[in-house]
Design a protein around this nucleic acid. Structure first.
Length: 109
DNA sequence: CACCTGACGCGTA
DNA sequence: TTACGCGCCAGGT
């Protein structure tokens, strides 16, 4: 266990993980949206870092997290882009001109 | 220690 | 609608 870790950062991380885990299949959430729900409105980049450092063994639906433009935040040429898009398409998310419908975000109030 | 980079987002032009 | 700039800030060089 890491002793002097900042409890606030740890709590933030846990909240983000919980939120991501609560995203229903076929729906998505934006980095900034999650950060906001976790109580840290200007930390969208922190959410991105969390996912980047996410251990491969994790079962979190990281692919359901995209940016506020409704697009996947990887280069359209990258393998990661293709992988994420494939996962989303497999659960019914429709892409139109590389973007998902805004309705896809409506998984919460 | 300075400087760059990035799984972001928003306001302006 | 697309293009930039700036805020934010942990990590890497």
């Amino acid at each position: 266990m890491q002793n002097n870790k900042n409890p606030i950062d740890t709590a933030f991380k846990e909240r983000i993980y919980t939120l991501i885990g609560s995203i229903p299949m076929g729906k998505v959430a934006a980095y900034g949206q999650l950060a906001r729900l976790a109580g840290a409105p200007n930390q969208s980049r922190a959410v991105g870092r969390l996912l980047k450092n996410l251990p491969a063994k994790s079962t979190l639906p990281w692919h359901r997290v995209i940016n506020s433009q409704g697009k996947i935040s990887f280069s359209i040429e990258s393998e990661k882009y293709q992988q994420q898009r494939k996962l989303l398409t497999a659960e019914g998310v429709i892409f139109k001109n590389n973007k998902v419908s805004l309705k896809t975000y409506q998984w919460l109030a």
